[in-house]
């Protein structure tokens, strides 16, 4: 799973710390998400999409690893 969190965050002029506070996670979690080292829960995915003003489908894309 890949995501465009960094792209949309920068567009909105948010820092990792600000985004982390808005979705109530640690800054480290945002770092891990942006590096694709962690797949968020559905709840966090929806929260992120809401804060970044995009849909979940725009924010995350899934490629089957076969």
């Amino acid at each position: 799973m890949t995501n465009r969190i960094k792209e949309f965050r920068v567009k909105l002029g948010l820092t990792q710390e600000e985004l982390a506070k808005k979705v109530n996670v640690r800054r480290e979690t945002i770092v891990f998400l942006e590096k694709n080292k962690y797949n968020p829960s559905l709840r966090l995915a929806f929260d992120l999409a809401q804060i970044l003003n995009v849909s979940v489908e725009e924010l995350f894309s899934f490629e089957d690893e076969k």
Binding site: A20, K21, N24, V25, R26, R27, E28, T29, F32, Y38, P40, S41, L44
Partner: peptide
């Protein structure tokens, strides 16, 4: 002011 624990930790 961050949570000490979140879903990742």
């Amino acid at each position: 002011g961050e949570p000490q624990e979140d879903e990742l930790t």
